[in-house]
Every structure is written in structure tokens, then in C-alpha cells.
Design a protein around this nucleic acid. Structure first.
Length: 684
RNA sequence: GCCCGGGUGGUGGAACUGGUAGACACGCAGGACUUAAAAUCCUGUGGCUAGUAAUAGCUGUACGGGUUCAAUUCCCGUCCCGGGUACCA
């Protein structure tokens, strides 16, 4: 929503008797020559003024109809086309064309100016309206408009558009606005939409409204009467008449003569918007939190949540915080310092396809897709189609198929449907027939492969694509599941659930365990002092793990632990001074196995009482570095130099090397770049 | 349509402020141990070309351009995918 323009509207039709200015808001002023009619919201103030005598009865009838429709009706029935002609005509300021002015409920009084310019060739709703009421449609986008449906493109070249002819639409937008502003009939405008939020729920659990009704008018309770607590109840069923369970408690609702409470409660958003503030000082009887507590805890450091909360909950939490800040209760005006939207594990759904003409015949994905260009149509395929259609065969058309039907993934092996299980799945599928990939079919008592369609979507019971982690826990244990979920990829990435690769983390845990045990299963941790090499492995791992935790990069932490375990296995390191710190570092990732190892190491308290081990840079210092030597940006060789070697010396040695001589063919190099500790690049 | 993410081997993914693309793992191939299996261990594994081979060269991070000694990383444009949202003009 960016721009607006105004159009004068007049009453025409024979002779002009009076005229009004009709202002509209549009994001597409480029389509102004395609305007075939105007539509006002039924509530628009001009409706009464411009309706002609001849149309008055029809308009009144329509207004009565609209009044009879509740907000819910209007929201629910969005497809129905309704409207009435006012008898008035608007004059297009550019073309001078007279176009009819209609009213319709699809134009909302609360948005823009409550009036639109209708361009049926470019807007779907306008198009439906024009078709329904037989309003002629002007085509301003040539072949881009088929006559069948509207095309909202911005890429078409304009036709029938006066001074905009020949321009690509997205360029014409600015040209049109400039012209509108030049003529002083409208201006550029950014439009915002505010939406009301329903704050009542018809259920028991929720904050009751601190409001008292007197003569049907609500009054806020005074502060001394607060808090209003949720009354005890044992009947949680709704009270009927659209009222929630609290309406059952007559003595609570009608608590005093002439006074009445609200039976609704607040949505979970209400508490969720500020509970983190109350947590700072939960027992305070005088304020939601003491200033000292608020100053101490401050903002929430990290908020981890799904992006589905981004609209409602986060918006409310921010609003609450900002209001409390403006009222002087908080020193900060944003609730959360950092927001992380964790990804979702998605489901891998499977579909079967039934025929429109016979919902008991299921066609495989591959047989269904045989319709199309360059597809080989097999004899079997012809035969089965002939059987069903009773004509000369061919292939199935898309319009003969129902939309894909979700099938339980437990009935599918990979993409192949298990026919027997499927028939038993639901009783109405018992007598179903199947057409397989190659066109063979159970109709002819044949067997074959039925390939399902597939899609990655959110995991949902209604999609039958839910996998239960309990099965993984049974096979591998909870630590493996936990570790695997972290190893799968970045916290913020969404991905379909797949157990491919779970063996890797399971093997790691076993290998880690084996560092503490010999191959007969006996505990064998020694008290020996570690070597410098072992200490380097330990401290490098601790450094990396600490860094990764602070950056929420759990998948790379797990691979660092794997590298560490691989190296310590190779070093045959079974020393307490190396292993004990690692047990603490791994504990948040694999709590069960580390708790066990911690106990085996002789501790009597929990590993989670341990302190995260500190790493020391002194074990990580390198004295030399294996420099990649690149020629013209491509790495051709490696050369080892001390890290404190001066650039000039490195350059000298590199230029004298075999590899540089080979690539420079005797010519002197044009440029040499030495980046200490990183790379050497020679340009020849 | 708009807003927010993302696109790297057969697969999941790694690469800090531009500096050896493919860490770690899965899968696959070959091998060791074993009567056998499981478990474990070792080797190889982006693609193409040449060579018996060690190896060498080219190419490669969705696509097309650009900046740079150097681009998965920065800039411009295009396409595709995931999520959110909308009778919003």
C-alpha cells in the first residue's frame, strides 16, 4: 500500500444534475485507463447523495441485506458476489470516460477511503464483479489478459491507456502519480491498516476482566478492589448462548444487585505479554515487580520461539513493555534483547489420488502423471482408461482426479503404498481398486507398484505425517535423539524429519563411552598426566564448544565433540585430567550418559553442579603455519613458515620456490600479497 | 501480492571480520578381524579430462553480470524453495 489518487465523480446520464468528488486509494494508478466502474462500501457517505431515483429502491434493498449480515457472515462468505448500481456515473479525469458507480460489501468502509476504482482486467475481485453484473471489460494489457481471468501483472506493456501507452506497468506507476500530482487531483500516500484484536475467550482458564457492568455499561473496577481472581469452579463446560463456563457461576456473575461481571476471560496472550516481568519478583504484593528486581534482571536476554508467534504474542509483549515504559515503570522499552526463531521439524507427507467419477479407484502418482506431452502411453494404461471411461482409452486427465488425499505415512514404504495396510486403514477403503505405475490394476487382478505423491509440510495429525520420537528413544536412547536433533543443522533451519545419519551420533556416544572403558567393559580411567598433544585437543575443544554455545551453533558443537573423541581414541588417551572436563562440557548435550560417567569418575553429586571448564590459550599456540601458496588466486602448493617470520622473508622464499618459477615462466611477478597466518598470493 | 528466511557433493550440513570450498556425519565402494554374523577398525569418495601409476590440468557454492590480488561470503539483476500474512484495492 503506497500511493493514492483522487477522482472526481459526478452524476451523469442524460444531464449532469449535481456533482461530488469521489476519492479513492489505489496501489495501481498505472491501470487508471482500465477503470470500468467504481465501487463504494455500502456505508460510504456518498451512497445516499448520488443514488438516482430510479435506483433508490434497489440500493435500499441491498443496504437492508448488508445490515442483516453479521461480521462473521461477511468474513466467511468471501466468494459470493453481491452489489447494487447507484445509477450514478463517475468521470475518469484522464479519459473523460463515464463509468458506473456501484456499491458492494467486498469494499470495506474501514480501509483506504472506502471506495475503489475497479480494474477488472487486472484485479480478481473486480473481474468477478464485472462478469457477474455484465459490465464490459476494457483490456489495457493486450495478450496478457485472456478474457477468462484477471492478470495482476506489473510487467505488461500498457495499451488503451492514453499518455501511459507503451510504458511497462511498474514504470507507469510513477509517471501516473506525477501527472496526478501535477494536476492537483490527488497525492502520494502511504496507507496503514489497524486491525482490532478480539480479547475475549469463552473458557475458564484465563484472567477475568476487572470490569463491572451497570445498566449494560462497563466500568473499570477501582484499584482497591483488585485483584479480581478467577472464582473456584467445578463445572468447566460452556454455559450455552455463546457464553463461557464462568456464566454458570450465577452468584459470581450477578454478585450485587444491579451489578454484573463479564463471563469472558482473557486469551493466553494476556499473561504471555508480561509474565517475564512478574517472574522477576513473583511474591510482591504491592507491585508487579520491585524497581530493584527490574533493574537487576532487566530485559530478557534471549527469546527462543517459533515464527508463528511473531505476529500476535511478540506484538503484545512489545506493546505491554512499551506502555509500561511510557508510564515510567520500566527503564527499557523492548522486552527481549535477542530473538531466535527456531526452525520446525517438518513432516514428509504422502498422497493418494482418487478419480472424480469413482472415489474408490486410486490412481498412482506415476499413472496420474502419464497425462502430458511426450509421455509414452502403454497398452496397459490405455486398457485401464478404456475400462473406466468406456471409450477409446488414452490417459487420465488432471480434471478427472480429485486433489491428493493424505495417507498415513505408516502405510507407505518410502513412496510405495502398502495396498493391504491401506485397505484396512479405513473401512470405506476396504473395497477400493488401484491403478499402478505402469497402468496395471487390481481391477484385472494384477499386482504392481503404487507410487504416492509427496510433500514437505508441517507435521500435523490431520496430515497423517507425524513421527513419534519414542521409537527412536527405544532404539537408541534419549541422549542419541537429543544429540541428533542438534546435529541435524542450524537451530533456525526447518527441515523434514529423517533418521538418516542417526547412527553417526550413536557411534560417537559409544566411542566417547569407550574412552572410559576397555573392551571388556571395565572402567579404566588413569591418573597419569596428559601429554601436550592431549591437552591441545582438550583445550581446542573447550574453546570451540564455548564459542558455539554462545552463538547457538549446536550442530557444530556436536561435530567438534566427534572430532575430539576421534582424536583421543587415536591417541589412546584415557586420562582423568582430559576426560573429566569433557564430561562437564558434554553434559548439556547428552545428560544421561555424562551423569553416569560423572558418577563412575567418583563424584557423588550431579554433573550439573560442575563448573564449565576454562580453556587456556597457552595450549593452543602454534609456532608455524602451513601457508597455502596461490598463483593468480589458485592454490598450487603449501609451504611451512614460522608465524613470526617477517613478510619480506616469506615473500623471498616463496618467490624462490619451484612452483612460482613453474607458473611465472621466468617473468618477474607483478604483485605478491602475504597475509600472515592465512595465505600467500602471487600474481604473475 | 506483501513481509521474513533460504538455495553448497548422492544426503544432512561446515567454512570466524572476503583468504586452501566441502569440516563433521550419513550413504556408497574396497579391505582387515571373525567358522559366521553383529560390533569395531583402516582406505577411498564433487564433476570432467589425460596417465599403468604416483600425479597433473580444467571445472565447480541456484542462474547472469560486477567489485577485488582473492568472492559461498560484498554489490546489481533473475529464477526457484520454505514460513508468515491478506476480500487490505
Amino acid at each position: 500500500m503506497e500511493r493514492g489518487s483522487g477522482l472526481p465523480a459526478g452524476q451523469a446520464g442524460g444531464e449532469v444534475t449535481k456533482s461530488e468528488i469521489l476519492t479513492v486509494f489505489t496501489t495501481r494508478p498505472d491501470t487508471i485507463f482500465g477503470v470500468d466502474f467504481m465501487v463504494l462500501a455500502p456505508e460510504h457517505e456518498l451512497v445516499k447523495k448520488i443514488t438516482t431515483e430510479a435506483q433508490r429502491a434497489e440500493v435500499e434493498k441491498y443496504l437492508t441485506y448488508v445490515e442483516s449480515r453479521s461480521e462473521v457472515d461477511r468474513m466467511a462468505e468471501v466468494k459470493k458476489v453481491t452489489g447494487a448500481f447507484t445509477g450514478a456515473y463517475a468521470i475518469n479525469p484522464f479519459s473523460g470516460r463515464h463509468v458506473p458507480v456501484w456499491i458492494s460489501e467486498y469494499v470495506l468502509a474501514g480501509y483506504g477511503t472506502g471506495a475503489i476504482m475497479a480494474v477488472p482486467c487486472g484485479d480478481e475481485r473486480d473481474h468477478k464483479f464485472a462478469k457477474h453484473f455484465n459490465i464490459p471489460i476494457t483490456n489495457i494489457i493486450g495478450a496478457n489478459y485472456t478474457g477468462e481471468e484477471a492478470n495482476p501483472t506489473k510487467e505488461a506493456v500498457l495499451e488503451n491507456s492514453g499518455f501511459l501507452n507503451g510504458l511497462v506497468m511498474h514504470q507507469a506507476i510513477d509517471v501516473a502519480i506525477d501527472e496526478i500530482e501535477k494536476r492537483g487531483i490527488g497525492q502520494r500516500q502511504v496507507n496503514y491498516k489497524m486491525r482490532d484484536a478480539g480479547w475475549s475467550r469463552q473458557r475458564y482458564w484465563g484472567e477475568p476482566f476487572p470490569v463491572v457492568f451497570k445498566d449494560e455499561l462497563p466500568y473499570a473496577m477501582s484499584e482497591s478492589e483488585l485483584p479480581l481472581e478467577l472464582p473456584p469452579a467445578d463445572n468447566f463446560k460452556s454455559a450455552g448462548n455463546g457464553e463461557g463456563p464462568l456464566a454458570n457461576l450465577k452468584e459470581w456473575i450477578d454478585f450485587a444487585p444491579g451489578l454484573r461481571r463479564d463471563s469472558n476471560t482473557m486469551p493466553t496472550h494476556a499473561g504471555a505479554a508480561w509474565y517475564f516481568l512478574r517472574y522477576m519478583d513473583p511474591h510482591n504484593k504491592h507491585a508487579f515487580a520491585d524497581k530493584k528486581a527490574l533493574d537487576y534482571w532487566g530485559q530478557v536476554d534471549v527469546y527462543v520461539g517459533g515464527s508463528e508467534h511473531a505476529v500476535a504474542h511478540l506484538l503484545y509483549a512489545r506493546l505491554w513493555t512499551k506502555v509500561l515504559h511510557d508510564l515510567g515503570y520500566l527503564t527499557f522499552d523492548e522486552p527481549f534483547k535477542k530473538l531466535i526463531n527456531q526452525g520446525k521439524i517438518q513432516g514428509d507427507s504422502r498422497f493418494v489420488y482418487r478419480l472424480m467419477s469413482n472415489p474408490l479407484i486410486f490412481v498412482s502418482k506415476k499413472a496420474k502423471d502419464a497425462y502430458g506431452f511426450d509421455k509414452v502411453v502403454t497398452e496397459k494404461m490405455q486398457r485401464v482408461v478404456r475400462h473406466i471411461r468406456g471409450e477409446k482409452g488414452g490417459v487420465f486427465r488432471y480434471d478427472e482426479m480429485q486433489n491428493g488425499l493424505h495417507v498415513d505415512i505408516k502405510l507407505v514404504d518410502g513412496e510405495t503404498l502398502n495396498i493391504d495396510k491401506f485397505k484396512k486403514w479405513r473401512t470405506d477403503f476396504e473395497r477400493s481398486q488401484f491403478i499402478f505405475d505402469d497402468g496395471s490394476s487390481t481391477i484385472f487382478d494384477e499386482t504392481g507398484v503404487y507410487t504416492c505423491g509427496s510433500a514437505i509440510e508441517k507435521m500435523s495429525k490431520s496430515y497423517y505425517n507425524v513421527v513419534n520420537p519414542d521409537d527412536i528413544i527405544d532404539d537408541y536412547g534419549a541422549d542419541t535423539l537429543r544429540l541428533y536433533e542438534m546435529f541435524l543443522g542450524p537451530l533456525e533451519a526447518s527441515k523434514p524429519w529423517s533418521t538418516q545419519g542417526i547412527d553417526g551420533v550413536f557411534k560417537f556416544l559409544r566411542r566417547f563411552w569407550n574412552l572410559f572403558h576397555d573392551n571388556t567393559g571395565r572402567f579404566r580411567v588413569s591418573e597419569e598426566d596428559p601429554t601436550r598433544e592431549e591437552l591441545k585437543v582438550l583445550h581446542r575443544t573447550l574453546k570451540k564448544v564455548e564459542y558455539d554455545i554462545e552463538h547457538f551453533s549446536f550442530n557444530t558443537t556436536v561435530s567438534e565433540f566427534m572430532i575430539c573423541a576421534n582424536e583421543l581414541s587415536a591417541l589412546k588417551c584415557h586420562k582423568r585430567k582430559v576426560l573429566e572436563p569433557l564430561v562437564i562440557a558434554l553434559a548439556p548435550y547428552a545428560p544421561h550418559i555424562t551423569e553416569e560417567l560423572w558418577s563412575l569418575l567418583g563424584h557423588t553429586d550431579s554433573v550439573f553442579n560442575g563448573r564449565f571448564p576454562a580453556w587456556d590459550e597457552q595450549y593452543l599456540k602454534e609456532s608455524e603455519f602451513n601457508y597455502p601458496i596461490s598463483i593468480n588466486g589458485k592454490v598450487r602448493a603449501q609451504m611451512n613458515f614460522a608465524l613470526d617470520m617477517p613478510k619480506e622473508d616469506i615473500e623471498k622464499q616463496v618467490l624462490a620456490s619451484e612452483i612460482v618459477r613453474k607458473w611465472s615462466e621466468g617473468k618477474p611477478p607483478r604483485k605478491v600479497i602475504v597475509v600472515p597466518g592465512k595465505i600467500v598470493n602471487v600474481v604473475v
